[in-house]
């Protein structure tokens, strides 16, 4: 199943990106090759020391959207820019795209040859009489294959992110595995497991009582409920490794593993701290109002997940994976 989901994510992604790029090309979303007339307010003229013009491109939101299409800018455009003149007299304009730049230019700059810098060739430049402003006709550098470039960048970035996430886990993993080992040697884990035996026996009937996996799972679930994800992940991973010791077919998930994951992905949290923090930051009158609704939502997810794992594990197609070859 994961095989199909995985390949679907990649295939759908690449297809959607290619289709989006074809649509952009057909509709010329980025107006490649079409001249744009703008007003340029001059701040600094060329001098003995400097051969560039510095100033601001001024355009109303209406004019900008007329050129690029609706939604390209949400407010009037005031974009600092530099015009340089090369030996043959050709003028080139460079825009350093920043926070206040129009949306469409920000989008284009993300995929420009040099990140966050857009260039344009200036076809004509007419200075006003007092030389404080000029009217420019310019053609922006062409922007193509935006979505496919974004997909490529995402693939490379995510591969690197996966490694840094894993490496970042080493510290907390070591800490909690150390603490757990002390608890195991001292018999504390056995004590915790006995305490909650009525519950764990029903949830994980395949796991022998007193098995260290049970204690790790209990602590993982408790940490998750308190929102301590830094402690929950190491204990969850320890639980999976312990469950794997009971696995008759290495490389294939056991029933207990799937039930445990159903509890984890249900994400039962008593206080959804992240959501509350975001609500408070957005100026909510009552950020904590979602505590009750979240408990109901994640409670449903968890109960349904456990029930689904119990029902699906009996289906022939999933049972086949667990039969041990007696060859």
């Amino acid at each position: 199943m994961l095989n199909y989901i995985w390949i679907s994510l990649i295939a759908l992604g690449i297809l959607a990106a290619a289709a989006g790029d074809v649509a952009d090309e057909a509709g010329n979303t980025y107006r490649n090759g079409i001249p744009l007339d703008v007003r340029f307010e001059v701040a600094k003229h060329p001098s003995a020391l400097r051969s560039t013009w510095e100033g601001t491109i001024v355009l109303s939101a209406g004019e900008f959207n007329m050129f690029y299409g609706p939604g390209a800018a949400d407010s009037a455009v005031r974009q600092p820019a530099v015009i340089s003149v090369d030996a043959s007299g050709r003028r080139a304009l460079v825009i350093a795209v920043g926070e206040s730049s129009p949306l469409r230019w920000k989008e284009m700059a993300r995929h420009a040859a040099e990140k966050d810098r857009l260039t344009a060739s200036v076809e004509s430049m007419k200075l006003s009489e007092d030389e404080t402003a000029a009217s420019l006709r310019m053609v922006m550098e062409p922007v193509r294959f935006v979505k496919l470039k974004a997909v490529t960048a995402a693939a490379l970035d995510c591969a690197a992110a996966a490694v840094s996430i894993s490496i970042g886990l080493i510290g907390v993993m070591a800490l909690w595995l150390g603490v757990m080992k002390v608890g195991e040697e001292a018999g504390l884990l056995k004590f915790i497991t006995r305490l909650l035996e009525p519950l764990t026996r029903r949830l994980f009937p395949d796991v022998p009582r007193d098995h260290p996996a049970l204690a790790a799972m209990i602590m993982n679930i408790a940490a998750n409920m308190l929102g301590l994800s830094n402690a929950a992940t190491p204990m969850g991973l320890k639980a999976m490794e312990e469950l794997n010791r009971l696995n008759p077919r290495l490389g294939t998930a056991t029933n207990a593993m799937v039930t445990f994951l159903a509890i984890n992905t249900g994400g039962l949290v008593l206080i959804p701290a992240t959501a509350i923090a975001v609500r408070a930051a957005a100026g909510s009158a009552n950020p904590g109002i979602i505590i009750g609704t979240s408990i109901i939502g994640s409670g449903c997810a968890t109960v349904v997940g456990i029930a689904a794992s119990r029902i699906l594990q009996r289906l022939p197609r999933y049972r086949r994976g667990m039969e041990v070859d007696n060859g």
Partner: peptide, 27 residues
């Protein structure tokens, strides 16, 4: 989690996870 146990054949884990997510969102 499956990475930690070296699990490649996830059996019913994906449908279970998706069913649980749908239930949580609907709730």
């Amino acid at each position: 989690y499956f990475g930690a146990a070296g699990i490649k054949n996830t059996r019913h884990a994906v449908p279970v996870g998706v069913i649980a997510d749908v239930a949580g969102m609907l709730a």
